[in-house]
């Protein structure tokens, strides 16, 4: 479904991705792990078409097409979905309005009529139940005043309504307590099917207990440093990222876990500045 070859990406003068190769076959769930600042979010944003990221070399093929040639909205229409690490608050734009507009944009692209209002509401209600979200969230502004966990659940709700073929979920697990994590994991597992692929970007192996990946990749300094099956994630949990990077010339001291990390300060980190993380 997705094939990334020798991808080089710069943000300003900063070379963030340096020859990344990755292939995600249809029907598989791949986890991408890696220390802070290794380029995980950059990869996710480039796949979604965010401006400001310069692809200096390499290619990304999606269903045999050049993904990088498509506008962000076209990628969405073609079934690419990015679950944001930091979902954006948009006061004044109704949550349910966005869901409907997004679904209709996709349908229009595929030559389908607008979704029936009644069917749509039923669909959204069903997905909200799955995400254990109160219906009052529908009439609120997009992510406006949502807690960290609520924002993440809202991302998964959008994903479930849009049913993308390739979902790239950027740290959807961070900042969640264990109950919310299970809800989110359940949402992702619902989407899982032989026709769909999922890329789970995560910092912690915890999520992978609930969404079991087919493959695990470790991203270090803009390249895949190691790939394996899910036991790789467990190994990383035990040994830290130093273990992956030890053969590099200038080893850096990445910690997989902040040893004092509680849900509370994960939340704090989640709210923090992405660049500073």
């Amino acid at each position: 479904m997705l094939k990334i070859e020798n991808l080089h990406v710069a943000v300003g003068d900063n070379k963030v991705l340096n020859g990344l190769d990755l292939e995600i076959p249809t029907g598989e769930v791949h986890a991408i792990m890696g220390p802070n600042g290794s380029g995980k979010s950059t990869l996710a944003h480039v796949l979604a078409g965010r401006p400001g990221y310069e692809v200096t070399a390499g290619s990304v093929t999606y269903d045999g097409r050049d993904l990088l040639a498509l506008e962000p909205e076209e990628r969405a229409h073609e079934g690419v979905f990015l679950g944001f690490q930091y979902p954006v608050e948009i006061p004044g734009v109704n949550n349910v309005y966005l869901l409907k507009a997004a679904l209709n944009a996709q349908r229009k692209h595929h030559g389908l009529p607008e979704v029936d209002a009644f069917e749509f509401l039923n669909l959204v209600r069903e997905k909200m139940k799955l995400m254990k979200m109160d219906e009052s969230f529908l009439s609120r502004g997009v992510n406006e005043g949502f807690s960290g966990g609520e924002k993440k659940r809202n991302e998964i709700l959008q994903m479930l309504v849009l049913e993308p073929r390739l979902a790239v979920l950027d740290e959807t697990d961070s900042g969640l307590d264990i109950d919310a994590l299970k809800v989110v994991a359940n949402g992702v597992n619902t989407l899982r099917s032989p026709e769909k692929s999922v890329v789970l970007v995560t910092h912690y192996q915890r999520l992978l207990d609930y969404v079991v990946p087919d493959h695990v990749h470790v991203l270090v300094r803009g390249k895949i440093a190691r790939s394996g099956d899910r036991t790789l994630a467990l190994e990383l949990e035990k040994r830290g990222y130093d273990w992956v990077t030890e053969d590099e010339t200038t080893p850096r001291n990445y910690a997989l876990h902040d040893k004092t990390a509680s849900t509370a300060n994960q939340d704090a980190q989640f709210r923090g500045d992405p660049g500073a993380a």
Binding site: E73, A76, L82, V88, A102, H109
Partner: peptide, 9 residues
Amino acid sequence: FYLLSRGLD
């Protein structure tokens, strides 16, 4: 970008 990424033109 958030809205575009959801498919709105």
